[in-house]
Design a protein around this nucleic acid. Structure first.
Ligand SMILES: [Mn+2]
Ligand SMILES: [Mn+2]
Ligand SMILES: [Zn+2]
Ligand SMILES: [Zn+2]
Lengths: 157, 157
DNA sequence: TTGCTACATAGGAATCATTCCTAAACAGGA
DNA sequence: TCCTGTTTAGGAATGATTCCTATGTAGCAA
């Protein structure tokens, strides 16, 4: 099933969500992306089509979609919140240079045994593996960046 | 080796760090804790002994210790930064009720194979597994908390 | 022991992502 | 078509973290 407008609107109806142009555009932009964008990324992408769009609405919409279970908040580190409409179980790798986040679909990671050594009454409901490293582009430019501890984004897809 | 003052001061010297009362107290508080405290947690703990201590100094000290490799920033989610002086490789579980973070020392988790499906030029340098769930105390009180999406901390320490 | 100097501290202001507040617009059902 | 509860936009508020800067001081050398 491709992501036609009717498809999105039906998904909203199934979740009991009103279907508005802004909400549809924000969700569609997120579904089409594999970059795990921030609220501001989505705002920048949808804004040209809806010049009246408020960043506030993006935040509100994302919280609604998250509550409905259509969107996941994928935060690696404690910087800006990043979002993911890919609901299939998977993990992530973040480039410490450009901060780009890639999906890691390796099915072995979805079978990790419950960890030992926890209190008996602690109940694990989920887990996420966050890999860190450097992408090819950032590895090449890493030599010249001895000063700043956190690099800028050279390539952002 | 217990954590005497001389021990801490020697460790600072080995890293080329000046040894000040504030710095020593902050690091000592972090070493003694297993709670992965925030900067403000540490400020609250050290403040009574050093009433002139600035929260700013806590942030600066933590960044210095992190750069020196004596302290790790353990951020699960993108909320406040939390710190860890436990340098042995391990992972974490966070209670979604009280936000307490526990260490997960299961050695199996330190042997995960490099994930498949990544671009060839991506170089993984580390990874961290973050488990989520509910501790015993929060499970018991979860029934009465249908309204607030993120609960308060019932037990902290 | 004394003096120098680079680093550390404290306090205030600035930053910035996110949330709160509120009035107007509107989607969806009656 | 009308009503009502939701959604939106915009402005203000919040709060963690960083920036700026003057003063203090640890560690080294004379
Ligand atoms: Mn993803
Ligand atoms: Mn830990
Ligand atoms: Zn990169
Ligand atoms: Zn708990």
């Amino acid at each position: 099933m491709p992501l036609t407008l009717e498809n999105i609107q039906q998904k909203f109806r199934e979740c009991g969500l009103k279907s508005t142009p802004q909400r549809t555009a924000i969700y569609q932009a997120l579904v089409q992306s594999t970059a795990h964008p921030t609220a501001e990324d989505l705002f920048a992408q949808v804004s040209p089509t809806y010049p009246m769009l408020s960043l506030n609405t993006v935040y509100y919409t994302l919280s609604v979609l998250r509550t409905a279970g259509l969107v996941l908040e994928v935060n690696i580190g404690h910087d800006r919140a990043r979002f993911d409409a890919n609901l299939s179980p998977h993990h992530h790798v973040i480039c410490q240079g450009c901060q780009n986040i890639l999906d890691v679909m390796d099915p072995r990671l979805n079978r990790l045994a419950s960890p030992s050594g926890l209190p008996d009454d602690f109940e694990i409901s989920s887990y996420q593996v966050a890999f860190r490293g450097y992408c090819g582009a950032c590895r090449k430019s890493k030599i010249s960046m001895t000063t700043s501890p956190s690099g800028k984004r050279p390539v952002s897809s």
